[in-house]
């Protein structure tokens, strides 16, 4: 039996906002709906929105769901989350927000929360006159033919949910859960996303390095270089190093163990530590023994 949270069971047994919204034909009010899923896939959601056109505020939201316990609870949760939000705010809602609202979902059921997010997007795009199909297949090759899942959708869940394995992707968007022939393709996407992330963090580091450091940043970086790059070498020789003080460009360190009494300690200081700190932190640094 699935280990559903109290909140999931409560919203399943006592769903709120189920049903459709009739168009009141009032000025400044629009009623739209978005649809995802199919009977073949085993779950489907039609999400109805009542939007105040002047403010783009969602005045009411209702759902019609064909699906399991968590699909119904996710749909009901979604309608509660988006009420009184603007369309732009609503577009920032992720499947994770829905799952969190429910107090979590079993991992194999995360695709229910994804369905909610997709129906919301579909409804808003429909209101704004953007073709959902186009959005879906933008640069999108179809990765999973069995469940009709395109590359952008898989990328989105990987990024938004920090997914690392193919099994997780299957749990979240079903891709790979059918014939299994796309499993390698999903793995490639995971690697791609991870590589993009590494590249991004390297770029951020480079940008940070290009700007002058504040005193705190400088001290932190000195400490980091000493701990990660200098200390291991000294430890291997039976010595140790500790940062004593930083005053302007003068770095005071205390040397311990084998290094402290060693005649070549000054040379050690000058040559290795200073070179290292100059190259990694600032070319104007000098190192002295405290």
């Amino acid at each position: 039996m699935w280990d559903y949270s109290e909140k999931v069971l409560d919203l399943f047994y006592n769903p709120v906002n189920q049903g459709a919204i009739a168009d009141p034909n009032e000025p400044d009010v629009a009623v739209v709906f978005g649809e995802v899923g199919s009977i073949a896939c085993g779950d489907a959601l039609r999400l109805h929105l009542k939007i105040q056109q002047s403010t783009e505020i969602i005045q009411d939201a209702r759902f019609q769901t064909f699906g399991c316990t968590s699909a119904i609870a996710s749909s009901s949760a979604l309608t509660e989350i988006i009420k009184q939000k603007t369309l732009d705010e609503a577009l920032h809602i992720t499947n994770k927000d829905i799952a969190d609202y429910l107090g979590g979902l079993p991992e194999a059921k995360m695709h229910c929360s994804v369905m909610g997010q997709e129906a919301l997007e579909a409804a808003i795009y429909k209101y704004r006159g953007i073709e959902v199909e186009q959005h879906d297949d933008d640069d999108g090759t179809l990765i999973c033919a069995c469940y009709g899942i395109s590359e952008p959708r898989i990328r989105r869940v990987i990024i938004e949910n920090d997914l690392t394995t193919v099994e997780q992707v299957t749990n979240y968007v079903k891709a790979g859960g059918g014939c299994g022939s796309c499993l390698a393709g999903i793995e490639d996407l995971l690697i791609e996303v991870q590589q993009e992330r590494v590249a991004l963090s390297q770029r951020v580091t480079a940008e940070v390095a290009a700007t002058p450091l504040s005193p705190i940043q400088k001290i932190n970086l000195i400490q980091q270089v000493l701990t990660e790059e200098v200390r291991p070498i000294l430890l291997a020789d039976g010595g140790d190093i500790e940062l004593y003080d930083v005053s302007g460009d003068v770095v005071k360190v205390s040397l311990k163990g084998a290094c402290g009494g060693c005649e070549s300690s000054t040379v050690t200081l000058k040559n290795s530590i200073e070179t290292k700190l100059r190259s990694r932190v600032s070319p104007t640094l000098t190192v002295v023994e405290a």
Binding site: P15, Q18, G19, E35, G37, S38, I39, A40, C41, A44, L45, R46, F63, Q64, T65, F66, I72, A145, C146, Y147, G148, G178, C179, S181
Partner: peptide, 23 residues
């Protein structure tokens, strides 16, 4: 059934996306 968007074999949208045959 009151919750379901689907209530007749004639409703097309839910059936439109049938499973693609396995390659």
């Amino acid at each position: 059934r009151a919750m379901s968007p689907f209530n007749s074999d004639d409703s097309t949208w839910l059936q439109s996306r049938t499973l693609t045959p396995t390659p």
